[in-house]
Write a protein that binds this DNA or RNA. Structure first.
Length: 554
RNA sequence: CGGGGCGUAGCGCAGACCGGUAGCGCACUCGCUUGGGGUGCGAGUGGUCGUGGGUUCAAAUCCCGCCGCCCCGACCA
């Protein structure tokens, strides 16, 4: 392929819009261009990388017995209303109306559409198991798209759905996909880790996320070095710790003035206590009903856990007016003592606190020397927070370490959640109607490519892992007065291509420095430099991009 | 959705405070030059200054609205 015939608009300067490495380098290397926030064009070079990732996925999934199909991007609201997700998905669902004012959406995922297909076409246990996948553009109106291909509103995703006769079969399908994912990300040259993920509101028995380890990752992962446990910090389960009875304090609670001190930071500094001694009280509305959540000042509420605990479809922070009405105090002074109108849930760690500080439910007042269980009794204690460094591993109780990762894949046991709602059944051997047991499996194709850049680059540019590089070899034809260089380059290109090697030939009339720099930026694994000097010696040079090792070839 | 920032040529930016009709570097075109890590010289092309309105003799510049983009936050108790 001649570089002069390909649109590869490399940039010398970093575009101002790009913050992280992968976004910056993919823009600079002329692989992507932005059309709107979170919506990109894949230029020829970028598309080749995307296609490489897709081919790896196809090969591994076909190997594992999955079959490729292609579903529509637009789907009617009725399907989504059947499962309740038309409302549940909220603003993230791109919605549109057709000319008859009928509601449609652009698919963020396709459980409804595939389940609709399967319930109509699959009737017998003989047709199971089945696993369908597609590679397709997805739409999610993200609250905050960012980082180029990392979090787009329109993005390419591989989604797969397995259908089995029973739980055991579904687990087997799940395991196969898990193995396929391991192989896929391995072949993409990624340093990744499969981590346990919570099954969340969707229910089911298993879920794993595939995380590429990178400091720029948006997800926190809790890992245990002792037992190899790894889980998303949002989802890592935290156990209740045994109560230390000796720690009970005889001190009576007392109300102290804290004028204008609202935040955890302000109050703890003002009173001279540690944030872990402060019990903050947050008021949420769960499906409209207010609920007070109590947890330590140094901990963060995990809204997924909270939502799950309350069984709520919608969970939002209560507004200031609601907080004032319920607590009788301005925002910043809410506390669990004397709160009667709302149910109170507290994190497990709250139970451990002795002589804590809580809001006074009165302006400019906090209680000190508060002991949970004595001075207030929550309706229940539960695991309500994100894991932090040092928390006990749920498996072996050793301290957890927090690292960052990019979620490139997710596998999920769905059970019968969708098949029940959509009445997807089959007849078993005894002729009985049974619900099909499902699993779903996603891979972010563009995100995987971006993650690869995050892990494979240097100061000069990208260092593509060979399996997903846009080309295998980049031939740089340098200055050519005699005409011999061009001829030699064309000849070499032909030979390599005949051998099945993908070649990009830089035939542009550019200075050597420009070519070297562009080649390093684009990051094709091998560069072959052909120049007049070398040719007179009967030599060309082969440089490995990653190591910069140069070999002279006769 | 809240906060901050930005929007001037394809890219990176100056000009704005102090109003007088737009400039620099790179890129692009042509010529010469150079030819192994972003050559040098010369001549050019390219801009409704995001958009709508207002103030003014005059607006990129001052005022108001809107749109777009980026970053942070959405943990405030």
């Amino acid at each position: 392929m001649l570089q002069s015939r390909l649109l590869i608009p490399t940039l010398r300067d970093d575009p101002g819009e790009a913050e992280i490495v992968s976004h910056r380098l993919m823009l600079r290397a002329g692989m992507i261009r932005k059309v709107a926030a979170g919506i990109y064009i894949y230029l020829p070079l970028g598309l080749r990388v995307i296609r490489k990732v897709e081919q790896i996925i196809r090969r591994e999934l076909n190997n594992s017995g999955a079959q490729e199909l292609l579903m529509p991007i637009a789907s009617p609201a009725e399907l989504w209303q059947e499962t309740g997700r038309w409302d549940f998905y909220g603003k993230e669902l791109f919605r549109l109306k057709d000319r008859h004012e009928r509601d449609f959406c652009l698919g963020p995922t396709h459980e409804e559409v595939i389940t609709d297909l399967v319930r109509r076409e699959v009737r017998s246990y003989r047709q199971l198991p089945a696993n369908f996948y597609q590679i397709q553009t997805k739409f999610r109106d993200e609250i905050r798209p960012r980082f180029g291909l990392m979090r787009g509103r329109e993005f390419i995703m591989k989604d797969a759905y397995s259908f089995d006769a029973d739980e055991a079969g579904a687990m087997e399908s799940y395991r196969k996909m898990y193995d396929a994912y391991m192989a896929i990300f391995m072949r993409c040259g990624l340093n990744f880790r499969a981590v346990e993920a919570d099954t969340g509101l969707i229910g089911g028995t298993s879920s794993h996320e595939f995380m590429v380890l990178a400091d720029t990752g948006e997800e926190g992962i809790a890992v245990c070095d002792a037992c190899n446990y790894a889980a998303n910090v949002e989802r890592a389960e935290l156990k209740e710790l045994p109560l230390d009875m000796h720690a009970i304090s005889p001190q009576e609670k007392r109300l102290v003035p804290t004028p204008g001190q609202k935040t955890v930071e302000e109050v703890t500094q003002f009173l001279g206590v540690e944030p872990s001694q402060l019990l903050k009280t947050l008021v949420y509305r769960a499906d409209g009903k207010p609920v007070a959540v109590v947890l330590r000042g140094d901990h963060a509420v995990n809204e997924i856990k909270l939502k799950k605990l309350l069984g709520a479809a919608e969970l939002v922070m209560a507004d200031a007016a609601t907080v004032e009405k319920l607590t009788g105090a301005p925002v910043g002074f809410a506390g669990p003592i004397g709160l009667s109108e709302v149910s109170i849930v507290a994190d497990f760690t709250v139970k451990q606190v002795r002589d804590g500080v809580v809001g006074g439910n009165a302006a400019d007042r906090h209680w000190m020397n508060v002991t949970p269980g004595r001075d207030f009794v929550p309706d229940r204690y539960a695991d309500l927070r994100n894991t932090v460094s040092g928390d006990a591993c749920p498996r072996c109780s050793q301290p957890l370490r927090i690292v960052r990762g990019i979620e490139v894949g997710h596998v999920f046991m769905l059970g019968t959640k969708y098949s029940e709602k959509m009445r997807a059944t089959y007849l078993d051997q005894q002729g009985r109607d049974k619900f099909i047991v499902m699993g779903c499996y996603g891979i972010g194709v563009g995100r995987s490519a971006a993650a690869a850049v995050e892990q494979n680059h240097d100061a000069k540019g990208i260092q593509w892992p060979a399996p997903i590089a846009p080309f295998h070899v980049h031939i740089l034809a340098l200055a050519d007065k005699s005409g011999k260089v061009a001829a030699a380059a064309a000849d070499l290109e032909r030979q390599l291509e005949e051998a099945g090697i993908e070649v990009l030939l830089d035939d542009r009339d550019e200075r050597p420095g420009v070519k070297f720099n562009d080649a390093d930026l684009i990051g094709i694994p091998y560069q072959i430099v052909i120049g007049e000097k070398g040719l007179t010696l009967g030599q060309v040079e082969l440089k490995e991009r990653r190591t910069s090792i140069v070999t002279k070839l006769a």
